[in-house]
Write a protein that binds this DNA or RNA. Structure first.
Lengths: 198, 198, 198, 198
DNA sequence: AATGAATGAGTATTCATTCAT
DNA sequence: GATGAATGAATACTCATTCAT
């Protein structure tokens, strides 16, 4: 597809498509959402879709990349405030949970992407970045004697997995008002595990 | 579907179909695997599939339910040996990791199922059972002063999420020889978190 | 198919198949009834069907021909008693209605057959015989000055059509106790039409 | 199905599909005509069919309902001219025969529909309306002393059945030039029956 | 920019029939 | 005689994508 130069109106349209598509993908999964669904929801013909996007896959990729980027940004922002590596990890966890709470469709998008080979690379790359980040903090923490020895990468994955699962459960079951408690629990679980202080 | 009386040959065929389908689903996802693929892989006509299974969906469900049952069983087995609730949690974690290591396609199956509305109930039910189980041990641990106070359900989910993520990463990247280390790390992460002993 | 020499047991089986098939065809139409349905209803394997019948089509044809033959016979029987041609027509009508009342599935069979090219010849042949028969009586009646002039064939078809429709309506709506009235009405309609005696 | 806004071209296509389908159904029955047949006959892809119709069944229903409506209209038109109830019945009969003569595929459609459970309701409803109409005229005729006493509904069914049968026989066997005679015979049969004036 | 129309390969599923045991 | 297993062509329907206007 040739790069289109979009008018102001065109840019708006493009964003409408992204928005609607994100919602539908989150509600009905990737294969469950047809290009027709997206166009119908917008009340436009199918030509519109292919005017702005090369393919359904390209649209989804763009959506996913954008979401991951946003997530990453909100984590970075939260971290800058804390100097202590453990505090940075904590703030990262809290920021992630808040982000998923504010942008619930992103969670769906990531979950969906994880299932389709076409998008796994994208997700894995995103995960990798987050884990590497976290692992960095963990290493610092180890060096400072704050964090027990272990494989920092694996620990990073543990955090990521726990958060995802926490958030998923929490999004399904609650109506948004016990968010702080969830974040506290997540932080405690990741930092201190299950055991009573010894 | 009419319950079929299967001969020895029939029982064998049925199992072949299950086996091949499990492999293909794991390799190519649910929608990515066609009934035709399964039959071709077995070198039989399409009728064979529908002789033994009511539908593609029914086959997948059966596969999934069987897998979850097996997983559950291996956990239960492992647990009976340990009397202390914390030990039971540890053994459960180790058993799960070993199970996914021995039956890698089960992980794929579960992941796939999580994406399709048709199967989510099944997965959620399975998860629920595991989490409830774990939460029980956690409660006992709390009562015994071994485990810090908190919401046992949430903690259970944290464990499940961490394990899944560990396993997934580990299955993709390693070739099976650092399994023990992974289990150790998982156990430590879940029980003691990241922090240095305080 | 080679002509089979059937044992006593075999003959019985064959008749069971015919019987069950007739019922199912009447209930679910021709295409709506599968060979599998027939076998399942009998609790036998599919081989049985093809042991006794060359094909589904052949079975249906046999069923239909048998039914038409029976119908014809019951008409002939009824007629022998009446000498007057008008009385013969009347008895024929009454016999037909009684026959369909006693063998409701035959009506279905005929209706079904009428829709499928494969069987239309058979039905038409059957109809033709009945109409020709009736037309014969009508001609005699005309010669005797009992019946108004007209095309005997067309009149015969009128009778047949009216009866079929009467019976069909009657089979659907009533529970079998106003049969005599129906026959009376049919006879009157066919013989005297709608008009008041002039 | 989403209501489609059709352009002039689209409206035309839609009608082409209806037309071709009507012809093929009449020639090959419902199950005997595949969606592919219809599309091939038009020289278009299968998508076209599903662009304009929700399903094969929906198309057939639309065809049938339209046909029955037309039939009904032509009957009503014919009737308005005649004031005497017997004349109204006569005109109704003549109009029906003319209609089937002008639109032979309608007869096929009705016959076909009668065989498939999916469409029986539609046909029965149509029949019911016609019979009720006729029964109304019959009742008036009885009140006026023009028609002999009897069950008006049954008489109505007799007329309908006779006409259908007349028409069916006539469509198969003749080449269209003895139409008037057929109508005369039908009218006479229904009004005066077979017997000589007494 | 946008629309409705058209494409056509692909999917799950059915079923009459045949076959090995 | 009878069974369960196997075949495979056929069917309705879907949907990402392209095209004419």
């Amino acid at each position: 597809m040739k790069e289109r130069k979009l008018t102001k109106r065109g840019t708006k349209r493009r964003e409408q498509v992204l928005e609607v598509a994100a919602r539908l993908f989150a509600e009905q999964s990737y294969h469950g959402t047809t290009v027709g669904d997206v166009c119908d929801a917008l009340g436009v013909g199918k030509g519109v879709f292919y005017w702005y996007f090369e393919s359904k896959e390209a649209l989804f990729s763009e959506l996913l990349e954008g979401s991951l980027l946003q997530l990453r940004r909100s984590q970075e922002e939260a971290i800058t405030l804390a100097r202590d590596p453990v505090a940075r990890i904590e703030q990262g966890i809290r920021a992630s949970i808040k982000f998923f709470d504010d942008n619930p469709e992103v969670l769906s998008l990531i979950r969906i992407a994880g299932r389709y080979e076409e998008f796994q690379t994208l997700v894995q790359r995103g995960q990798h970045i987050v884990v590497a980040d976290t692992a960095g903090h963990i290493k610092e923490g180890m060096a400072a004697g704050l964090i027990r020895p272990g494989d920092p990468e694996l620990m990073g994955h543990g955090i990521l997995g726990a958060i995802f699962h926490f958030v998923e459960v929490y999004m399904d079951s609650t109506n948004g008002n016990d968010r702080p408690q969830l974040a506290d629990e997540a932080v405690t679980f990741c930092l201190r595990g299950l055991l009573e202080v010894r």
